[in-house]
Write a protein that binds this DNA or RNA. Structure first.
Ligand code: FES
Ligand code: FES
Lengths: 146, 146
DNA sequence: TGCATACCGGACAAATTTGTCCTTTAATTT
DNA sequence: AAATTAAAGGACAAATTTGTCCGGTATGCA
């Protein structure tokens, strides 16, 4: 579905959001440990999100990553996905035709479209802040314990 | 969504199915040309499908690939996808957690599940023969012309 | 039997994704 | 100012996916 980079990016954003909602700024090491991701690779992904202004970073001692109240309220899953994976999965043809269009649709087109639309809707309507509070209430996990 | 290999595999199967329905057996070169895929790579993918007994191949002159009437009737998109990409996309967690389960669900789990279920249903309920006839009637394309 | 055809299979190569390491840059504290 | 902290950035390495090439094998035909 999503690339590893994107999965890490989403999980990281949600964790950062959860901590930001409690007024805590978090460092890379902490993030990687909490979401169970490779540290250096997660750093690269976070750089992308910072450049896209979906996450805020602060250098130096007591620095780290955070979501501003505005980011917490407005940044959606869709923006994260687009920033990392691009729009291919959100607009592309299920069978890989160069264009998904009703002009020359693939044989799955009309069956596939509603599903893809629902996925788009799901990503568009869920903010990081919303998912973060779910995690905060123990209704969702970013890492599994055995 | 699906890997390139899987996309080629589905498109190839549908084209083979369409021709088989008209009693024609088709060669690799023909297939690759008709679905717009790299020939040698498509060969690899078809080998997988033949091994999985989702497509039938015949060697020698006038040989090629075909779908038996039974294959045309019973092979579903889902079987093709599973044979090539495995079950990860059909059962895995949207955020990449090692297990998708209500025990320790990711924060997208309950929103994502119905969409994934619909995708599963879509793949499970569409046979290659069905899609092939759609192409045959000009209602679907396996390659785009400009 | 010999030959031509077309899939099979293995090895190899290119491209992309995933992941690591190390130096530089910016900010805070002493 | 100097030292410390933590993200930024570049180079590099490993793994996976995508794609190519070629000799082997089975089949049909003359
Ligand atoms: S053309 Fe294939 S999904 Fe739209
Ligand atoms: S746990 Fe993430 S989708 Fe089910």
């Amino acid at each position: 579905m999503f690339s590893k980079a994107c999965e890490y990016g989403i999980r990281a954003s949600i964790y950062i959001g959860q901590q930001s909602a409690s007024g805590r700024r978090v460092g890379l090491k902490d993030i990687a440990a909490e979401i169970g991701s490779p540290e250096a690779f997660t750093a690269k992904v976070l750089q992308q999100l910072v450049r896209a202004q979906l996450v805020t970073s602060v250098k130096g001692p007591a620095g780290g990553f955070e979501l501003t109240p505005e980011q917490l309220r407005t940044v959606t899953l869709r923006e994260i996905v687009v920033a990392i994976d691009g729009g291919a999965m959100l607009q592309g043809c299920a069978l890989g035709l160069p264009q998904c269009s009703a002009k020359q649709p693939c044989p799955m087109h009309y069956q596939f479209l509603p599903i893809r639309d629902q996925l788009n809707e799901l990503l568009r309507t869920h903010t990081i802040g919303e998912l973060a509070s779910k995690v905060h209430e123990g209704l969702g996990f970013l890492k599994q314990f055995s």
